[in-house]
Design a protein around this nucleic acid. Sequence first.
DNA 1: CGGCATCCTAGGGGATACTG
DNA 2: CAGTATCCCCTAGGATGCCG
Lengths: 99, 99
Amino acid sequence: MLTHCMAVISGAWAANVIWSLRAGPRRFNELRTDIPPISAKVLSSRLTELEQRGVLSRNVRPTSPPSVEYALTDLGGELVPALEAIVEVGHRLKKRDDG
Amino acid sequence: MLTHCMAVISGAWAANVIWSLRAGPRRFNELRTDIPPISAKVLSSRLTELEQRGVLSRNVRPTSPPSVEYALTDLGGELVPALEAIVEVGHRLKKRDDG
DNA sequence: CGGCATCCTAGGGGATACTG
DNA sequence: CAGTATCCCCTAGGATGCCG
């Protein structure tokens, strides 16, 4: 159960993608820039996966050159506070380690 | 940054361990029972890792047979609401898939 | 620009067996 | 009971190259 739910944000970079989209829609290459060490392949798979799960939406705009925008869905947006909470605790855990 | 924080709960079963401890302290074999498909080796590594990060505490009680209790630290406990939020969204995502 | 297909590698994780 | 040691395997993910 938990495991199934966690699957949504596990897999490398899934959380980063959501994180990167929390301020608004982003295009494919913008996401690549946001998350430097990610490879195109993985970003692509992650995006597909997250779209299928209903976490984000994909919007192709018929411009030239073509442009594709990714944005969090309502449900996807609800993941943001959870991630923020984790980051918050992560910070404190780190400070504890360092100090 | 996010990545580093996420590392705390990523790695197979870390989230499950925290989840399993949210109601109170548990012993090694109780955790194994709680999370059936986990192997002793992995549970052991995860426990060690989480202890070092300060997420949980390990308390050896000199009984016979020996017993070891694991419990969430204060910081570890703060992860629980985050996990609950994720589970909540996970549920809704699933219902959306099914429905 | 966006994004598959291919190939390849590292290491996280499973099974089993053994110890204190 | 609570682990540790060993071995093996699987697959998520990186690199590269090509296509619409």
